[in-house]
């Protein structure tokens, strides 16, 4: 059967026009970013935000303590 089916072997060539169409489109399309890369980017962003918030909170706490200490010393 496979021998009979090997009849089906006509090959049409790839035209230059098709080659140009396919190869040109590649330069115009950026490959989709993988999901893990997007997730990792989000995680980094969130971590940076949290770190920044903690830093600001700590600084504010420090200022308040200094202010209270100073206030007590005035009294």
């Amino acid at each position: 059967m496979k021998a009979d089916l090997t009849l089906l072997k006509t090959r049409i060539p790839v035209s230059d026009e098709l080659r140009a169409r396919c190869l040109d489109q590649q330069s115009g399309i950026k490959p989709a970013r993988s999901n893990w890369l997007i997730a990792a980017s989000f995680l980094v962003l969130i971590s940076l935000n949290v770190a920044a918030c903690l830093f600001v909170i700590k600084q504010q706490q420090g200022t308040r303590v200094t202010y209270l200490n100073n206030f007590e010393s005035y009294e």
Binding site: I12, S15, R21, C22, Q25, I29, P31, A32, S34
Partner: peptide, 22 residues
């Protein structure tokens, strides 16, 4: 049909470029 086939082939390679990351 040659014309249809060339369009489909182009679409296949477009999908490959877009989807190869996944």
């Amino acid at each position: 049909n040659r014309q249809d086939v060339e369009d489909v082939t182009q679409e296949v390679f477009k999908s490959v470029v877009v989807g190869v990351a996944s």
